[in-house]
Design a protein around this nucleic acid. Structure first.
Lengths: 205, 205
DNA sequence: TAGATTGTTAATCGATTAACAATC
DNA sequence: TAGATTGTTAATCGATTAACAATC
């Protein structure tokens, strides 16, 4: 019984549904249907209804879904009806851009700690947030009870950083380094190597 | 017969295999097995062998795979045994970091054009590469016969940029903007919204 | 009411895994 | 040879889709 009742692949689609609902809501739209949502996302309406049915009944026959209600429900299901404090390790060009990225706002996450090992960076600030010494990573993560970390260090150091984070109680790691992290059961890791995504497309060129 | 003989999901794993092989090769390793590779990636050895079997026989019974040979074959299959010229549209913080990212090297891609619409950026350079006026996007892409584009503009503009790129002959789009792009059949798009990946993990927290 | 859309079932489709003969 | 690992088959497992009763 290590596996959850709801398939991973279903969970993986929920954030995409939520994002699309956010745009509809911003545009002032109040109601949508599985058919409309599916068209926008390139997914069948049956799949959307099936996915949602794992969690309850959120729509109304003949009408569809009230967008604000479905947003709330998806946020609750995904546990982003709160704000998770996120630590970012590695403040190179990419880490810097991630630290300044304002796309986390209102989507469940807030970068609240920055770490680097470069003495010329330690103590400086990005938008008021101080860059801390990576030597103190473990104790600081523990002290703040951080559960979510983003890693933007060079590939050669990413596994060690991940290991330290996990030791400090982190349960979710978003890894920008181009290497597959090995993590123990119960710990989640996601990988964001742009070249992997490019190569998935070049096959078809 | 719109679907290819090899499932998308298989193609999607090949870049991950290739990346792992690259690291093994860098470390001086010459031979690996489906079992070893599977352990490193958290994938069953049977799946790796099955995936590779779509394309030929690359191993030797009793021994495993010669890493250099498998690298070459995967590069050929993924069409990254060459260097694709990539245009990057949107040079904000994130685009700037992507432009300076050196992880594309030797993996099949090279950023060769930069575009932005901000007059204060147009004409300036990032590592020798000039930022061009986004107004000329379509004609410039056509002139250089660009097939691959990365989009790092605000979400509100991403679909329009994608439409323009496709009109100019682009077939593969890597989208950093937090919005699902709608693209016609035959055009590939991949999405890199970090929040989607964070939300896929927060469900399990 | 008539039309539309949900939630759900059952059937189809496709992917993963276990097992093993082949063979290095 | 003995041990190891591939490539492949068949079975299992899981995901997607089509269809429709329920109902707004």
């Amino acid at each position: 019984m290590a596996s959850s009742a709801v398939p991973d692949i279903v969970i993986g689609r929920l954030p995409v549904y939520l994002r699309a609902l956010n745009y509809m809501a911003e545009a002032g739209q109040e109601i949508t249907s599985s058919h409309e949502l599916g068209q926008k996302l390139g997914i069948s309406s049956a799949q959307i209804r099936k996915d949602l049915s794992h969690f309850g009944e959120f729509g109304k026959q003949g009408t569809g879904y009230r967008i604000s209600h479905l947003q709330e429900q998806l946020k609750r299901i995904l546990k982003v009806d709160r704000e998770w404090e996120v630590a970012l390790v590695g403040i190179g060009d990419l880490g810097h851009a991630v630290a300044r990225y304002n796309g986390f706002k209102n989507r469940g996450f807030r970068i609240s700690m920055l770490f680097d090992s470069d003495p010329s960076k330690i103590g400086t600030r990005i938008d008021e947030l101080e860059i801390l010494d990576a030597v103190k990573l473990k104790e600081q993560l523990r002290a703040r009870n951080i559960q979510v970390v983003m890693i933007a260090v060079p590939a050669a150091h990413a596994q060690q950083v991940a290991d330290d984070c996990i030791e400090a109680g982190v349960h979710a790691i978003l890894n920008y380094a181009p290497i597959t992290l090995t993590v123990p059961p119960g710990i989640k890791a996601q990988h964001l190597d742009p070249v992997v995504y490019l190569q998935r497309m070049s096959y078809y060129l």
